[in-house]
């Protein structure tokens, strides 16, 4: 199921912007040697630092340009809040990362477009809540968004144990990929220009790749990234089936797929009167009344 339909134009925008964005991570590999080019003047990192937030904004605007259904939007906000609340749980403990687990599962259930938006909104909300806004934030948002997008693109027919296994494997892979990309982004900034592990402008790509591999192996792959991958995979295996069921139940209740049709002002006078009051399409299955009643009633029965 896909909550947010990705139109062909949106797919093209997503691909183009992602390609340009990938360059903002991988530029140290391709930077030319001759010193008179713009990329060498030390401006390149700054240009990319300015460029990426704009690209992320473009993708987000394009994804939501068809208008997000209010139910999808509320679901997005609530899941982003849960994700943002999960994130500080692991912070500080070496390598324990709790964000990707729900992101992968939600992307799987609600589709690629929703997964992309959820990745961005989760990290943005979490950064605002814990005051982690900085130049790294757009890069983190984009990486997380790619993870959510990829989870939505996994083959749809899998169910049961195979599905959980595939999701756990994807979660581990995504955790490593996230660590690698963020390291790649941080590489020029953390080292500066002329240590033995820094990138060398104009050197062959393989040479720079080797330096980067050593850098990332020394600094994080065996510690942080492995911890992150293990946490994600274990969380998906342990809680995956139950969370998937909860998410699918919510998706069914929200009835995202229901065709929106408005009944013409027909012979019965009651119907057109009801429509403007509730604001919900008449033909859509109505999850409304019981939800609203249960909510406004305060604590569910049995908890008072």
């Amino acid at each position: 199921m896909s909550v947010l339909r990705i139109a062909p134009r949106t797919a093209v925008v997503l691909a183009l912007a992602s390609a340009a964005a990938l360059a903002t991570f991988t530029w140290p590999f391709f930077i030319p040697a001759h010193p008179e080019s713009t990329a060498r003047t030390g401006e390149a990192p700054l240009v990319f630092l300015v460029m990426l937030p704009v690209l992320v904004a473009l993708i987000l605007a394009e994804l939501s340009s068809g208008g997000i259904d209010s139910k999808a939007l509320a679901m997005l906000g609530v899941l982003a809040a849960v994700n943002a609340a999960l994130r500080p749980l692991g912070a500080g403990t070496a390598g324990i990362e709790t964000v990707f687990f729900l992101l992968v599962l939600a992307g799987r259930v609600f589709g690629p477009g929703f997964g992309f938006l959820l990745g961005s909104t989760s990290l943005f909300a979490s950064a605002l809540l814990t005051a982690g806004v900085g130049p790294w934030l757009p890069f983190q948002m984009l990486c997380a968004s790619w993870i959510g997008l990829g989870a939505g693109l996994l083959p749809a027919r899998l169910r049961g144990r195979t599905e959980v296994a595939v999701l756990a494997g994807y979660g581990a892979f995504a955790a490593y990929g996230y660590g690698l990309l963020m390291n790649l982004w941080f590489w020029p900034f953390s080292l500066g220009a002329d240590t033995q592990l820094s990138y060398v402008a104009g050197a062959p790509v393989l040479d720079n790749l080797h330096r980067f591999a050593v850098f990332t192996a020394v600094t994080s792959t065996f510690g942080w990234d492995t911890g992150r991958a293990i946490t994600t995979a274990v969380a998906v295996v342990l809680a995956g089936p139950a969370v998937l069921a909860a998410l699918r139940r919510a998706a069914r209740r929200a009835a995202f797929d229901a065709p929106v049709t408005f009944a013409p002002p027909g012979p019965e006078p009651a119907r057109p009167k009801a429509a403007p009051q509730s604001g919900t399409p008449v033909a859509a299955p109505q999850p409304g009344p019981d939800v609203r009643a249960g909510w406004s009633g305060g604590a569910p029965p049995g908890e008072g």
Binding site: D69, S70, L73, A74, A81, A239, S278, G279, W295
Partner: peptide
């Protein structure tokens, strides 16, 4: 604890969507 909280949050999102609809979102 975690699963009921998640289910509660998801139900909350539906209630919120209904509230947004009734206030003319979209």
């Amino acid at each position: 604890i975690a699963l009921p909280v998640l289910a509660d949050a998801l139900d909350r999102s539906l209630a919120l969507a209904a509230a947004m609809d009734s206030r003319g979102y979209g």
